[in-house]
Amino acid sequence: MRARVHGDRGWGIARVVFLALLTLFTLLPMVWMLLTSMKTQFAASQYPPEWWPRNVTFEQYFILLSPANETGREFLRYMFNSLWVSFATTVLSVMVAVPAAYAFSRFRFPGRNLLFYSVLLRNMFPAVVFLMPLFILMRWLHLVNTELSLILTYLTFGLPLSIWLLKGFYDNIPAQLEQAARIDGATRFQAFIQIVMPLSSPGIIATAIYSFILAWNEYVYALTFLNDKSKLTLPVGLQRFFTEYTTNWPGLMAASFITSVPVVVLFLVLQKYFVRALTEGAVKA
């Protein structure tokens, strides 16, 4: 962040106008989602549209979040499934990425570079390319229709970036700190847990949010691996809403809103970690 040298006044105005338009472009669709979710189904199906809801109602939210009715129970179940899958993925990601990143940073074993870059290459593979063989594999492992199939798959989505990011952190922690700890009486493991881990916690947080958001939003594997209605995660669940209640746009918008809230809150609170997760590798000068 810097106080940039002042440019011409004209550029300053262009900048403000551009940012304003961009913000509108970004926000208006979401504003419309919110407005729609607060309309009755009848009010939503008007032409020309009701620009501002005349009768604001939170009926859709009550239905979705109340265990008292069938729809609510279903929706809450999807939400719980999503939470569980995302949470498990996050925890496992950290547990697997931390030692791997540490090893890539500290040790000089043969094949280190080759392995490191092949891990990174995962970023290049289209999810759909892996869909069929993984589907076959999951069938063979009897994991189709289980959360585990998703957790295992999501794990590999987040791992490359997590390892890359954490390696950057470990590279910046002097090996002498660990040496000092070992001389002070710590085992190698204690030195890692007590000295290195706390220093890399921003990286671990970044890794965790990244994995969580990735897992929470994932659609195509969830669509393919799960078909038992009670096992669905939110993104696939949304689609069921759409197909079963075709005309209920306020309901779908409310469901979309509720689905987005956790990741947006998580992201806004931990924005700097998330941004760091995304940008780290690319701009490391």
Binding site: T23, T26, M30, W32, W216, N217, Y219, P235, F257, V275
Partner: peptide, 20 residues
């Protein structure tokens, strides 16, 4: 943060919002 919201929300939600 605001500009990043579309990037962090689920593509499914985004698709339904725009379909509407």
């Amino acid at each position: 943060g605001i500009l990043l919201i579309p990037y962090v929300i689920s593509a499914v939600a985004a698709a339904y919002i725009w379909r509407w």
